[in-house]
Design a binder for these strands. Sequence first.
DNA 1: CGCACCTTTGAGCTCGGTCAAGGGGCGTGG
DNA 2: CCACGCCCCTTGACCGAGCTCAAAGGTGCG
Lengths: 239, 239
Amino acid sequence: MTDLPLSDILQKTALFSGLEPAALQAVQLAAHTCQSAAGSYFFLQGDPAERVFLLTRGRVKLTQMNPDGSQVLLRAVGPGTLFGAVALAQGELYPVSAESAEDSGGVYWGAASLQELVLRHPQMALNAMSLMAERVQEFQQRFRELATERVERRLARALLRLASQTGRKVAEGVLIDLPLTRQDLAEMTGTTLFTVSRILNQWETRGLVTLGRERVIVRFPHGLVAVAEDLLPPQTSQP
Amino acid sequence: MTDLPLSDILQKTALFSGLEPAALQAVQLAAHTCQSAAGSYFFLQGDPAERVFLLTRGRVKLTQMNPDGSQVLLRAVGPGTLFGAVALAQGELYPVSAESAEDSGGVYWGAASLQELVLRHPQMALNAMSLMAERVQEFQQRFRELATERVERRLARALLRLASQTGRKVAEGVLIDLPLTRQDLAEMTGTTLFTVSRILNQWETRGLVTLGRERVIVRFPHGLVAVAEDLLPPQTSQP
DNA sequence: CGCACCTTTGAGCTCGGTCAAGGGGCGTGG
DNA sequence: CCACGCCCCTTGACCGAGCTCAAAGGTGCG
């Protein structure tokens, strides 16, 4: 899936959909390729936002730090995903850090040249606005969830979202195909690794998931949906 | 502040900044005016997003409902603010409801005509992307706050944000110039009206704020900043 | 095979949610 | 102008979900 020619990848990217071939080619000409080994960063929170990235291979975690050192994991993305789009606005700093969860590759555009492309091909502007509108909605919704729902439900939702975004079908179910520690899951759902561990193990005994080191396999999504949606008494842990 | 001619208001709106006069005039020609009495809605969550609004008078609360009936207050906005911008993306439903907190007036554009204006005047596209990038950042940050900080700190931040956005200088300090119940504040910060009431009263005895029915006056912003930022032992309530 | 890091599990505690009761401001109608 | 009633707000008591801290397993890599 990484061996496709760049032009094919671009064509499938929401930001560039509906562009005429000449525009696509201009986009491609302005693109630079880049690599990032597992554990290293495409950019750091606070860096001037000068590039917009498109991931072509690997996995990237987008995290935001607190002044006090704790952090949250805002998104975990796979190939075909655009990130760092904040650089489309001028004069911003990256609000997050982009860390490779595995060896990754991507292409990027300089902010100025992408802005120029937007000015020249306004269809891209509409695409970009759709993308960002979607992003705003996602975070508004997650904000609401965090404000009003308990941990168990948020974790169920997070797993379902991950399974649908970066899931890979395996024998036992849907493997979340990126190395995710309990700590990472805690940072995505606004809780602690201890609570995540407890809930996951509870679910494992119920047959909903299979656990491993930095691995979760969702065996029975329907059960998670039941937890996420409503039914089902909040279910305290009792030995 | 509501008696300015529309053209002046448009000129000051971020979305239209940097447009040449002809473009501004086209924008103005496409605008429709509208009114909304206190307690009524510009639009409801789930309605097809067909209009983008610019508030010219009054106050509007943007809220999102849970399936279970509880809700969160995502933004409280005043004159000059654009809302419903999700309509710039095609085929979306409004993810929030927009309720007038007092008698309000605004102008709106149909989604299609605004999209057309964007296509014709790409500077607007860049402006729109800046706006939405800012919005994404705001919610990412609030998500992080909600995930990692305790209520007291979140409430302090919320008050400071409100004071700077919709604050009005009065004798005793900065009045948050919109009728906000304790419940509203709770919905903004992801807590309950009881906790908000307790914390505010604690602050009042410390001289940080002055309270009234649906009113908060910030007397000593610096003290709130101290609560919001770090220092200062978490301070449990003790009679 | 040893070290680093991830994970599990237990015990205790606390922040803040829940529920109940009552006080008080403000508009409305008599 | 007063009285009623609605809603907003306060305060107390209780308690429980989930955080904190500590101590051991596991697991994989060098």
